[in-house]
Design a protein around this nucleic acid. Structure first.
Lengths: 245, 245
DNA sequence: AATAAGCGAGCGAGCGCTCGCTCGTCAAGT
DNA sequence: ACTTGACGAGCGAGCGCTCGCTCGCTTATT
């Protein structure tokens, strides 16, 4: 992309423009480059050091793992299944992973830490509660769109990890819930929003967002894209929270 | 309960009174008697024939299974774990189950067939869309309240079963979605509801209902009971669907 | 005495994981 | 230009172990 076209597209920058396209352009990782980041974050745990070899293989391993796990669950997937799906041998597989459990942990860590870190600076910290709520919800839906298999995996498999990993994952969920709740409460205090039970409303928000990656198969069949779904969620929240004179 | 007090309580009969208490009184099974029904439905698969012995043991087995599965997943639970938790030996366990897989199937079958059958005659087939939608949603939430571990188990473990069982379970979910959708569409045609995307609204309904059994731990901590949660969901749907002049 | 219910050591299969090995690549040495 | 040898990457039989499940036996009930 040259400087000129980049400048043209820069007019659609997140969060000024709250479309999926704008978000994708602004966020520093996407569904392709994430494997490079995954490699760099975990070099100490991966024996194969040559990035040109390791990154495509890691991608292959993770994609196959997501597919099998989504169908049968991570625990039910044997490493022999994964080897057959990737075409790797048992020995080669263990040049990329420390253990089966560690593989799952690397993924949850990536989602729980890296993805959150990447997302944080993109959210407006001050301004109208309505605008901040929109940015918050859209950012989550768009992240879920980019990394659907990652989020799905973490949601389904977190409970099988070690207790401290479970706690961390729960805290990430709780933080997101509290962020939403804080903005709703702020809006209520400012008289913009109805004084509803903020905990229940925030939980409902979270549930709608999670639907996007938990039941993506369902929406893909209905020709609803991420932007349209985010529109729907925000319109619903709006109708729920705002005064109607 | 004698005839007199029963008559007094009959004034609070579902679906005339749409409280959890009324529902519980009207629905022919509850969280205690369900194990008797489970035994009677599956006598052919259970070697122990004496109900006085079998029913309490089945309850013990199922309760332990629900607890371990919720924490670690059904596949990760070994039968030795389950034996230790129940205090039964391996041999005794196999007097109650055909196989580990069959145990899971009996539970999903129970939820997918029996629970639906029990629920069906309690729903008003005709009448105001608004009232029918309320009955539909409340019935689901109240059923989820009574049988939370059952519903949670089915949601989490269905995907690990045989393909035809998966299909059946998906159809049960789909049916419920379509019921909700049909009522919404009827309301829209009657001019009571806004002409929103009925698929998305129905999916949102389902998501909110599922939250009640998927994240029950979260609500229990907030002192929100089933009736209050159903009130919240219905109020939300109402605000979402109705015209505000 | 007969039957119902419970017991638990033990089976074979399949699990996660290891390790001695092969092979292609490429820079250093001649 | 040719040889050499160290190295990164891949391989897969096989290890120790746990899994779901069985079966010959004992104990409890009637």
């Amino acid at each position: 992309m040259n400087a000129r076209s980049s400048k043209l597209l820069d007019t659609q920058t997140w969060p000024q423009a709250m479309t999926f396209a704008a978000f994708r352009q602004t966020v520093p990782i996407d569904e392709k480059s994430v494997y490079k980041l995954f490699f760099e974050t975990n070099t100490d745990q991966i024996k194969v050091q040559n990035p040109k070899v390791a990154i495509p293989k890691l991608k292959l391993i993770l994609v196959c793992m997501f597919r099998i796990s989504a169908r049968r669950g991570f625990h039910a997937m044997s490493l022999r299944d994964l080897c057959e799906a990737t075409g790797l041998s048992m020995g080669a597989m263990y040049n990329y992973i420390i253990s089966k459990e560690q593989l799952a942990k690397m993924v949850t860590e990536m989602v729980g830490v890296t993805f959150v870190d990447v997302n944080q600076p993109l959210l407006p910290a001050i301004g109208e509660p309505e605008l901040r709520l929109e940015a918050l919800i859209r950012a989550h839906i768009y992240m879920a769109e980019l990394f659907q298999p990652w989020y799905f995996f973490v949601y389904m498999e977190t409970k099988n990890l070690s207790p401290d990993h479970i706690k961390r994952a729960k805290q990430v969920e709780e933080n997101m819930l509290n962020e939403v709740r804080a903005v709703i409460l702020e809006g209520a205090r400012a008289g913009i929003y109805l004084p509803l039970d903020s905990k229940l409303v925030a939980a409902a928000c979270q549930s709608l967002i999670q639907d996007w990656y938990l039941k993506s198969w369902h929406f893909k069949g209905s020709c609803v894209d991420a932007t349209a779904y985010a529109d729907f969620v925000l319109d619903s929240i709006h109708r729920l929270l705002k005064y109607h004179r």
